[in-house]
Design a protein around this nucleic acid. Structure first.
Lengths: 252, 252
DNA sequence: AAAGTTGGAATGTATAGACAATTATAATTA
DNA sequence: TAATTATAATTGTCTATACATTCCAACTTT
């Protein structure tokens, strides 16, 4: 397969490697280069456009990163077959979508207090009897006066930092941890499940009991993998959805 | 911040750029290099280890790809702050997890037939009155004789390829399309929602009616963005969950 | 005919150097 | 003092070259 008779503008402000990357990407998207087919060799492309092989490699490495081609030492570089089974749901949508709709949504703090540690919390945070207190938050997210989600959050309590209402500009769990404890959130784990909401949750969200909801449990760790935060959020099933795109060829 | 007094083995079979990448990565993970701090300049690293600047750049570019550092022309390269709010759920878990448990699960074809096109299908596939027929599949996924999910699938019908039972080794929608039509699946869109399952679905899955379930609608496109397949799957809410990890520091 | 050898072709790693683009700082000027 | 201008530092792009590593096919040997 021969790269099309397109040209590359060496004097352009757009880097050569990027022009070449886009050029090959377009041919793959258009189907001129089909899955399994081989690209021209680096040397061929290099001499075809009179550019350095290293520059060609840079362009191809971007294509490899994008998952559109794969290289095999000694054989060549080939167009990949799009995998349509590696589904990735980005939870951006969850609140991003609401933003896009232009609704003004905001998080309200229902409650914030220091609570005594019980066995369950100690288990979750993997701490011993000496840990007596935790911070406890309850928040709701609402858009246009409709409540969308309800969340309870726990963090380790460190006396040094008082709870100031003014600091609640970032109501996310990592944000609360950074603001009210001396820990630095470094990694997180989330588990998403479906559930039928409880009576209490239904009352808060203004939906029927047992309505289907998203349930997301989140654990925050610091750099030593110590658990420094835990939360459980309930999202109205009739107001949220996750969308996933896969493959190469243009989206939506 | 000075790169630690670790050494790089130039004669090793492990590439220099990779050794350097791992070395810096470790320092960030350990917290020796904290978010916001600057890395040594490329020239400094280059002369410190007596390696080429291009090799240093290769290592750093890997770190940039990994999202652990960011570079600013004219200023330097800095350790990034881990973002813990870009949640990504990989739907691998859905069936992968079942695999890991060692359960032998398999897909059973309940029904496969040619159906007449109705207005709703024509709307979904964006085709006109001339399209008269579609392929219709109903499948269930079961593990250890417990049914886990139920799915209905539609694809455009092309007379050329008959429905052969033997070809059902790949029961995925892209697989069915590739096997039974002349279209090549190139991209897909999935929407995940929660729902209360219907009586019919409950009967098939052996759960109580109105139980919370995952509902995934999938649309498959070819290279011209033509819709060539559509499916709706129901997953038992008590058997599936999605897990997401974020940030840098080791994963559970 | 089967096994082993060799050589060419392709990608992978590494180097040294040149210049561009951007930023921040220091020096100069109004 | 404030604004402007030079200067140095740093990352970004590109080249030309060398050699390593891997794969494959052609050839040679057994």
């Amino acid at each position: 397969m021969v790269i099309q008779e397109e040209t590359i503008d060496k004097s352009s402000v757009i880097p050569i490697y990027y022009q070449l990357f886009k050029l090959i990407e377009e041919q793959i998207r258009r189907g001129d280069l089909k899955p399994g087919e081989s690209l021209p060799t680096e040397h061929e492309i290099s001499s075809r456009f009179e550019i350095s092989r290293m520059t060609v490699r840079r362009a191809i490495s971007e294509l490899v990163s994008a998952g559109m081609v794969y290289a095999q030492q000694g054989r060549g570089t080939f167009v990949a077959t799009p995998k349509l089974d590696n589904i990735i749901f980005e939870l951006n949508d969850f609140n991003q979508e609401i933003k896009q709709r232009g609704l003004n949504y905001k998080t309200t703090l229902l409650e914030a207090k220091i609570i005594k540690a019980d066995a369950e919390l100690r288990e979750k945070f993997q701490v011993g009897e000496e840990h007596k207190r935790f911070l406890y938050f309850r928040t709701v997210l609402a858009a246009e006066h409709e409540r969308l989600s309800y969340e309870v959050k726990y963090t380790l309590y460190s006396k040094s930092k008082p709870i100031l209402e003014s600091e609640l500009k970032d109501p996310s769990l990592p944000g609360l941890i950074a603001a009210h404890t001396e820990y630095m959130p470094m990694s997180s784990k989330r588990v998403l499940q479906v559930a039928a909401c409880s009576e209490k949750e239904a009352a808060i969200l203004g939906i029927a009991p047992c309505s289907p909801v998203f349930l997301i449990e989140q654990t925050i760790y610091d750099q030593d993998l110590k658990t420094v935060g835990w939360s459980k959020a309930v999202y109205r099933g009739d107001r949220y959805k996750l969308t996933s795109y896969d493959g190469w060829y243009k989206k939506d």
